[in-house]
């Protein structure tokens, strides 16, 4: 599904402060994997996620997502890929605060031009069920929710267009550990029960251990890439 080779990203090319944050990064991800990319701040993991998520372009190298040569696509084509094949979950949720939960979840569908208008509502409900947000919250404004609920709305929004891959950038970073567990459990369920491919970016080993494969990145290089045979499980008490 994802295959990238020799990815290099250099900022401020030709200037005094030229900075290469990714050096020769190569790896591939198959459909149905739950991969954690772990690294300290400044390691290049966010830059890598931006490139994989079609938000940015590498300076050199190759990147193929679902048989699309991502380097050859125009900005509008990349926007289409983001809208149809990729779901994002951000650390700070990035919900429209004055909009209801349902409107937030349906937001990607207005740019997608594929899902018919009359199906949007059903798709949003389905995604909210999958993300595990109780139905009595669906008509609330998103700023009336708790952090954990907001992140579930964000997950539902990432799911609503049936993406082939979901990128989660520090999804537990703004949550307390218990709520974080619930969110990580949601990702595991989406991966194991619904077969979604998930790439989770984090700086915490503990969080990364919920994934079935861990790629460690340091100073722009992949330093380890290993399967995690026994992902950490969440023991839900409630």
């Amino acid at each position: 599904m994802i295959s990238c080779a020799n990815l290099v990203k250099t900022y401020n090319i030709g200037k005094d402060n030229e900075l290469t944050v990714l050096h020769d990064v190569s790896f591939s991800v198959d459909t149905g994997e739950f991969v954690a990319i772990i690294g300290t701040s400044g390691s290049g993991k966010s830059t890598l996620m931006h490139i994989l998520g079609a938000l940015d372009r590498p300076t050199s190298g190759s990147y193929v997502l679902n048989n699309h040569d991502m380097l050859a696509l125009s900005d509008d084509e990349l926007a289409d890929i983001r809208g149809r094949n990729i779901g994002f979950v951000f650390q700070s949720f990035n919900l429209l605060s004055r909009a209801t939960v349902l409107r937030n979840v349906m937001l990607p569908l207005i740019y997608d031009n594929v899902v018919p208008v009359q199906e949007r509502h059903a798709r949003a409900e389905q995604a909210l069920h999958a993300a595990g947000l109780p139905e009595d919250r669906w008509d609330h404004l998103s700023n009336q929710l708790s952090g954990g609920q907001m992140q579930r709305v964000a997950i539902a929004r990432a799911l609503v267009n049936n993406p082939s891959i979901i990128f989660a950038d520090e999804p537990t970073g703004n949550l307390d550990s218990k709520t974080g567990e619930i969110v990580l459990d949601t990702f595991q369920k989406l991966n194991e029960e619904h077969g979604h491919t998930i790439i989770l970016i984090t700086h915490e080993r503990y969080v990364a251990e919920h994934a079935s494969r861990i790629i460690e990145i340091k100073d722009g290089h992949i330093v380890s890439d290993s399967q995690n045979a026994t992902p950490r499980r969440v023991h839900m008490t409630s």
């Binding site: 998520g53 938000l55 900005d75 509008d76 926007a79 289409d80 983001r82 809208g83 149809r84 994002f88 951000f90 990035n94 429209l96 937001l107 990607p108 740019y111 997608d112 929004r157 267009n161």
Partner: peptide, 12 residues
């Protein structure tokens, strides 16, 4: 919000 909309697939 503009960044978010773009990430969700909005074109320029």
């Amino acid at each position: 919000e503009i960044g978010l909309r773009k990430a969700l697939g909005a074109k320029n």
